[in-house]
């Protein structure tokens, strides 16, 4: 009986380890090397001055991503100079969602004058490592010596479709807290968004 229990315990452990994907608050985040819309590869390590990064999984086609586009641009313009630039990553497969192809990313970033990098993750390696589940999905990373520590996961504010009715700016509050050497509260939020398009 004991043996069976042990076996089940081990099985559950292995099973959960297999499925435990993605980062939690205070996880150590991986750097990556992804193709930017300027034709060059980009890594977080390139930006030595930054105090951290606001990694946002987003895309062209999703109405929630579109609703937040201008707010993401404004966030970057305000916070890049404070040490927290936006790093936008499109995790979608362009065969399933042609509007999210690399050429359409270039088009959109030019049309809207993106002031931040917009990277392609079409084999989903970074999306899977981070555990991004939808677009837009935000991960705030803080530099700690050589490490990147996840300090906030979630959404940008409390009113996705009505920018005029925002009351709580979760992302700004989180980064302000980090700039003040405090822990973000809340550090984890949710929002409705589009599923990641994978084969």
């Amino acid at each position: 009986m004991k043996k069976i229990l042990l076996f089940f315990g081990l099985f559950t452990y292995l099973f959960s380890a297999l499925y435990a994907q993605g980062y939690e608050i205070n996880s150590k985040a991986n750097d990556f090397k992804l193709l930017n819309v300027n034709g060059k590869y980009f890594s977080l390590a390139e930006n030595k001055e930054a105090k951290g990064f606001v990694v946002i999984f987003t895309c062209n086609h999703c109405p929630y991503a579109q609703a937040y586009e201008q707010r993401i641009i404004e966030f970057h313009n305000k916070y890049a100079k404070k040490g927290y630039p936006v790093v936008a990553i499109n995790p979608n497969d362009s065969v399933i969602q042609p509007a999210d192809s690399y050429s359409k990313m270039i088009e959109r970033s030019k049309d809207k004058n993106y002031p931040f990098v917009y990277l392609l993750d079409d084999n989903h390696k970074v999306q899977e490592a981070y555990g991004a589940q939808r677009t837009p999905h935000v991960f705030v990373l803080q530099k700690n010596k050589k490490d990147l520590i996840v300090k906030y996961i979630g959404t940008i504010d409390d009113s996705s479709m009505k920018p005029g009715e925002v009351k709580e700016r979760y992302l700004e509050d989180a980064v302000n807290a980090l700039l003040d050497r405090k822990e973000p509260n809340p550090s984890f939020t949710k929002a409705i968004g589009c599923s990641i398009k994978k084969k």
């Binding site: 589940q133 939808r134 999905h137 949710k190 409705i192 968004g193 589009c194 599923s195």
Partner: peptide
């Protein structure tokens, strides 16, 4: 979102 189901990330479907 948690009220409906705490495991829901918010993605559809």
């Amino acid at each position: 979102i948690n009220k409906i189901n705490s495991n829901w990330s918010g993605a559809l479907p």
